[in-house]
Design a binder for these strands. Structure first.
Lengths: 146, 146
DNA sequence: TAACATAATGAGAACCATAATCATTTAGGA
DNA sequence: TCCTAAATGATTATGGTTCTCATTATGTTA
């Protein structure tokens, strides 16, 4: 079996934490790498079918988050969606549909990202808050819901 | 009793929807107007004490959201926080503490906001997504949690 | 003002996403 | 191969939120 670059990165990262990269975890990582935005446990469970039971899925998501493979997102009420962490997936932002709740990734070019970072730095400069990350969430309606 | 401007605005907005501005709802609006960021039902309940029972509080939050008095935020897992809608509170952004979950409002001046809006427009221009709003969420550590 | 219709309230039960438990299975190292 | 620790999966528990329903309050009409 040929391991993809992603698989190698994840495997290596998990190895540092003495966490095993098992079949179920691999399936979850793969499903998320195929997705075009953050996915909830329920959505992933639909993608994955019964091969990964919900209780295992939730634990897998927690484990992968703890090792910084996944990042959680909270853009809709009562559900946590996960996506591959930025170091695996690249820095990007989100289009959040206020009608159906779906979240889609959008990339920005470096120039835009520099301008955005400048804005963020300007905002936090005068405060006692220490920034670790920023997220530009754009709310509106996706193509399906217009 | 002298009604504040906020009270008048809320009262008038609710009137358009044939929704009554009762004592409990007034308390919730007041508590949120005093807060320096979005507040969850649990946090509000602490502020308000037993005068507004939880079941009423949740319903009040839903009613006020439906009439666009309040806006929900989902920056931490499993909790919805509310704040006064932008037309009452002004446009602003959030500092989200990844340690304690507290969210603080930050204002930006018009120039910064114009630049931000330009970035957002640039992002959505090529997509089929119709933007209604944007939120810049800055994650990091608040003063208490550093 | 009195009676009525409708909205709002509050206590409690129900719900749902997620977390914890625990017995069983799997897998890496001696 | 054996042994020990990690992982799994079925189940149960938890906690935030919503629903139900009987009661109370309020605005309206006569």
């Amino acid at each position: 079996m040929v391991k993809s670059t992603l698989d190698k990165q994840v495997s290596s990262r998990l190895g540092e934490d003495d966490v095993r990269y098992t079949a179920g975890r691999r399936e979850v990582v793969f499903a998320l790498s195929e997705a075009d935005g953050p996915r909830s446990a329920a959505e992933l469970s639909e993608d994955l079918g019964p091969s990964v039971p919900l209780s295992s899925l939730y634990r897998t998501l927690a484990v992968l988050e703890a090792s910084d493979i996944l990042t959680p997102h909270f853009s809709s009420p009562g559900v946590t969606r996960y996506e591959l962490a930025e170091w695996l997936n690249g820095h990007h932002h989100h289009l959040v549909c206020v009608a159906c709740g779906q979240v889609e990734d959008v990339e920005t070019d470096d120039e835009v990202e520099r301008r955005l970072q400048a804005i963020v730095s300007g905002i936090t400069k005068r405060s006692s808050f220490i920034e670790s990350n920023h997220a530009l969430e754009i709310e509106g309606k996706c193509q399906n819901c217009q």
